[in-house]
Design a protein around this nucleic acid. Structure first.
Lengths: 234, 234
DNA sequence: CTTATTAATTGTTTATATAACAATAAATGG
DNA sequence: CCATTTATTGTTATATAAACAATTAATAAG
């Protein structure tokens, strides 16, 4: 079994930082840890990597087991290996972040699970180094979203331009001129206008749009630079 | 010792992708693996993470043990966890990339070690998934260098503007207008002109510059956008 | 039927940045 | 003194950004 003799083996975990958007607020999904140490305290979705699964598979499995969520956008963030990060036993953790539309997954995220959404600005104290992971994930998302159309992963398949703008403003904590915003976003060719309108948000109603998937995948590698002074970011 | 009972433990390795620049060519440092499997074949600098060291410490230690190199720029790249990536025994590997000036470390990289520099375009077949790691590291460096002044890590502390331009052209595989290049690079305020000249490269000689460290660290988070059409990248 | 409200779009101005290219001066080894 | 590379300034056309004015459209609510 152990072919490389004399090498020490260690525990490998995966932790998922799950971001969601409900049309108004950016939120973080947390769960109460159900084993010692730190049992009962707020934690990211985490678990150990099993014998014959890849890291991506582990992340997907853990997310499903703890929240019921399946098929969401997941991306490897960073690996945390401080020897003392888990006081119980040395555990290295590969962190992933997920992006999803809260409303779309409301059902999957049923009461069977004890995960809860927290507004990003009002998160409780987290176990171990999970706060650091969240901070790094926020940075990564801002960085990436300034250049790539990644934020669409947080929206429903049908969305309005005012919704999209609200999302950008939430992520970058900024206000954007709506005239310039819609001009630029439409100029990308990423959006397809639908016949239907969303009447929930206003009297007049706003047209729904969907992503042009072909252009989306092509544009994913392109730089977007939607944010005026991204220097402030990192 | 094993507090989380019933969890399986695994081997964790670190692999370092070491890039160097000699004033003309971008090169990759490789070593012949000295244990089975794949003994004698070309490999990245790799080794197992030990009991009480962090991942960064492991990367630095491994680099030192295999090449004598110390104090070089190292950054975590990605973690590779395919269950079959090492046919001998499951091993997850955290990849790091390093950037250094080949000439400066010529002595350290003595004949005690069997590491060899290969031009990036003429690398031999590598073991396991190391080729994939190299490709991903190349992408990351281009991506980052298009926005941040990371390439200075590949130059000596004293360098000329033509040398700097050669480096940019090598990394991006492009030709850059030298008049626009020097104008823009000087406008960043990152460079300090020295009195001394480098007469090796030309009859007239080119002035040496050094980094303004203060501005450098400040600018590291800023976007540089030196490359015309970075869309083509990643 | 009027009004308040949000959506949607076009247009304008100013400022700034970019890419491409011309021209010239300076230094010096051979 | 010639060939070569360095170094710098200048010009132009083009593109993009940010700030802001103005107008039309749709409709729920009173």
């Amino acid at each position: 079994m152990h072919k490389y003799s004399k090498q020490s083996r260690l525990l490998l975990a995966v932790d998922c930082i799950v971001f969601g958007f409900d049309g108004e607020t950016l939120k973080l999904l947390l769960i109460r840890r159900d084993f010692e140490p730190e049992k009962g305290n707020w934690s990211l979705m985490g678990g150990f990597v099993q014998d014959k699964e890849s890291l991506d598979q582990a992340a997907n499995r853990i997310l499903k087991q703890l929240t019921g969520l399946e098929g969401v956008y997941l991306e490897q963030l960073f690996t945390y290996g401080d020897p003392d990060r888990d006081p119980m036993e040395r555990t290295v953790s590969v962190a992933y972040f997920a992006l999803l539309d809260i409303n779309q997954y409301q059902n999957q995220l049923s009461t069977d699970y004890h995960a809860e959404w927290f507004p990003l600005k009002k998160t409780p104290k987290l176990i171990f180094d999970h706060q650091e992971m969240v901070e790094q994930a926020k940075k990564r998302i801002r960085y990436k979203a300034a250049l790539h159309p990644i934020l669409f992963e947080l929206l429903p398949s049908k969305f309005t331009i005012p919704q999209l703008q609200t999302l950008y403003e939430a992520v970058f904590n900024a206000t954007i001129d709506k005239r310039n915003f819609s001009r630029r976003i439409l100029a990308t060719g990423l959006l397809v206008k639908l016949a239907e309108k969303d009447k929930a948000g206003s009297k007049r109603g706003a047209f729904y749009y969907r992503l042009n998937r072909e252009n989306y995948y092509a544009a994913f590698q392109a730089f977007m630079n939607f944010i005026p002074n991204p220097d402030q970011l990192r």
